[in-house]
Amino acid sequence: MKRFVDLHLQPSIKDLTQVKKMVSLASELGYRMVGITLPPNVTRDTVKQLQSICSNVKTNLITRADLYPKTPHELLHNLRRFRRKFEVISVICTSKAVARQAAKDRRVDLLSFPATNPRKRFFDHAEAELASKVFSSLEIDIAPLISLKSFQRIRLLSSLRKEMEIARKFGVPVTISSGATNTHLIRGPYDYAAVTALFDMATPLALRALSETPLTIVERNREKLNPNFVAPGIRLVRRKNCCPDA
């Protein structure tokens, strides 16, 4: 059985009842892990509160930060500040320079683009080539796709179809997330897989984008954030003080 992950829930953190509703609905629909977008200045107490809400409904919390840098310099500055604080870092690319820098940087997990403005979707061949070298993933939110109407949805579908083609060509992993701001925009993983067929994504690929791809990102980052992590494949097993005889 697949372990489904929704990396992008966007409830208002101040409203814990809304968080509880969204997380329990996600759990009911079959998500084992949920990523909640947190403000960069979030306190440890808030994170603990959210973790307890998630564990009460038998789901696992993934801490996530969405960065909105205006310049590549600001992006680098934000990555230095927040990379070790969150399990998943997503960069919302609003300019080409930021998009290119984000695609080059190993510390960026997810590349997101504004859904409502097709001119600001900078995922082209050059972007995909850079992203494929550092294993950054292209994130596609479904909430805008189901909430937009007529021409806006047509334009978004057209952009997504092109992006999927490019991602496939360069082997860039794709992550499907809800991007939901309330309970009415959350759907089950198989419903999302059906929606992705609208932009020519095959169902097995869509299911992978809802389970294995986000899971790999989270596991990789959790390992790196572990205090015993030294380098990929190297972990601290025991400290000197633990075994005085040695």
């Binding site: 189901i146 909430s147 759907r187 419903d191 999302y192 059906a194 067929a197």
Partner: peptide
């Protein structure tokens, strides 16, 4: 899949 996608798009 078509019907499922349509049902999901009802908001």
């Amino acid at each position: 899949e078509m019907v499922r996608a349509s049902i999901a798009s009802v908001t």
